[in-house]
Amino acid sequence: MDKLRLRFEKTGKAAYISHLDLMRVVQRIFLRAETPLRYSEGFNPHALISICLPLSVGTESLCELMDFRVKRDIDIAALPEKLNSTSPEGIRFLECYEPERKASGIKWLRIEGRFDYDHVSGENIVQPLLAFFRRESIPVKRRTKRGEGVLELAGNVRDFECEPTQDGLRIKCVISAQEPTVNPDLLIHALEQLSPELKPDFAKFRRVEIYDADMGVFR
C-alpha cells in the first residue's frame, strides 16, 4: 500500500475554498486524523497529495478525486469516516481505494447547472437553448495562459438537457474534462458571445460524475 485515492464531495460553503487553500485544508484534515502521509524528501518537505481535476472557485462537486501516498498500511475502509469527523462543512469523503488507473484516463465530466433568468421565464428559454447547444459549431473565444484562443464547444459539450425551474432553468450536460479542458463557465461565455439574449443572469455549476473516454465511470 503506497498510492491511494479518495473520492470526496465539495459542496455548499466549501465550494468557495480555492484549490490552493483546499490543499492546505486537506493536509490538515489528514494530520488531525493522524494519517501517516508521505512527504517529499526535499529541503522543504511537502505532503504528497494531488487533486486529479482542480475545481474552479464557486463550483460544487460530488465526484472529486484526490491521490495521496502513505508511509505505512492504513485501514482504508475506515478512513473516510475518520476524515469526515474532522472536516469543514461541505467536504465529505466517500471512499478510499488503491487506484487501478492513472488520472490521465479521465475524459468526460457530467455537470449540472443552475441558470437564473431575472426577466424571462425559463420555459421560454428551453427550446432556443437546446437549439444553441445543438449547433454544428460553437466557437468560443477564451483567454488562456498562451493568450487568446478559440475553442470549439461543439463535440466537447454533449447531451445538453434543460428543464424550467422557479428561477430559470436546471441544465445537465457532459463536458470534456481533459484535452481539451472545458470549464463550465465557457458555456456562459459562448452564450454571451454568440447569443447574448440566452445568457443567464446568474449561473452555478456542480460536477456530478467522472468518466473515461468510453463513458465508463472513472474511479
Binding site: K13, Y16, V57
Partner: peptide
C-alpha cells in the same frame, strides 16, 4: 451567492470552517 464569484477570496465570507 451572486456576489461571491465576483469578489476576491470568497472563502472569508462564508463561514463553515471546522470548529465554528
Amino acid at each position: 451567492e451572486r456576489i461571491l464569484p465576483n469578489v476576491q477570496k470568497p472563502a472569508r465570507y462564508t463561514g463553515g470552517e471546522l470548529n465554528e
